[in-house]
């Protein structure tokens, strides 16, 4: 795939991420170059330890590469400070974690509002937008429950709503269906695909789940930190 910086939301150039030091050096990502187009629905797959999560963390500005360049929406992440990276995560990226990762002291609607409030959106707008999105992900009536009072599937839906509430350019999902039963996983996938189609949000997710892989338009296979295949699938 060739990089066209205008059409591409993410571009990686010769990115390497190493952990530890010799002789115990681990190269989790090994000289990867990759571009992802805007509006893409991309699945990273491969065996455990292949570098999927590390790659997502690098793209999501949660980690820094040992070598190489990462460009997100035209900005070089490897050159930014902690504060600037926090701003990038806030404004441009939505995260869906495997373990839901909701703030336990906030209710569902407050978890969704959280990102908007950090971005300085007025409270009235935050509340109405959060309520609207929770209804969209099928959680109407559960807005004021805290994470401990919601099922795994419901929590993951809250996490999806939180990820897209501030209209990010990119949503990163790390094994989003791993902790869900098949019915919840199917519903979640439908939801993400709807959002991808209707809102044009770019999704990149790592997965082992065949169902998830089948729903992706682009499949990138990783092994030992390297891309071993990169293919497009027929549109769903």
């Amino acid at each position: 795939m060739t990089a066209d910086s205008g059409a591409m939301i993410v571009t990686l150039r010769h990115v390497t991420r190493e952990y530890g030091a010799a002789p115990n050096l681990v190269r989790a990502v090994d000289d990867i170059s990759l571009s992802v187009e805007r509006g893409g629905f991309v699945s990273l797959f491969g065996p455990s330890g292949s570098g999927k999560s590390t790659l997502l963390n690098l793209i999501g500005a949660l980690d820094r590469p040992t070598n190489g360049e990462i460009e997100l929406d035209g900005q070089r992440l490897d050159l930014l400070s902690r504060d600037e990276l926090a701003q990038i995560r806030l404004n441009k990226i939505g995260f869906i974690f495997q373990a839901y990762n909701l703030v336990p002291v906030l209710s569902a609607v407050e978890n969704v509002e959280f990102v908007m409030q950090l971005g300085g959106v007025p409270q009235g707008q935050c509340r109405s937008r959060a309520m609207e999105l929770l209804a969209e992900v099928g959680l109407a009536g559960l807005e004021h429950r805290r994470p401990g009072e919601l099922s795994g599937g419901q929590q993951q839906r809250v996490a999806v709503a939180r990820a897209i509430v501030d209209n990010p350019a990119l949503v990163l999902a790390d094994e989003p269906t791993a902790n869900l039963d098949s019915a919840s996983a199917h519903n979640l996938l439908e939801l993400m695909r709807d959002l991808n189609r209707s809102h044009g949000v770019t999704f990149i997710f790592s997965t082992h789940d065949k169902l998830v892989m089948e729903s992706a338009r682009r499949l990138i296979e990783l092994k030992d930190g390297k891309i071993i295949s990169d293919s497009c699938q027929a549109s769903h």
């Binding site: 504060d83 926090a86 701003q87 995560r89 995260f95 990102v115």
Partner: peptide, 16 residues
């Protein structure tokens, strides 16, 4: 610690 990691991953700045 996990929550502090979470809120920072969502974009909360270190000084906040």
């Amino acid at each position: 610690a996990r929550e502090f990691g979470l809120i920072q991953s969502l974009g909360m700045r270190p000084h906040n």
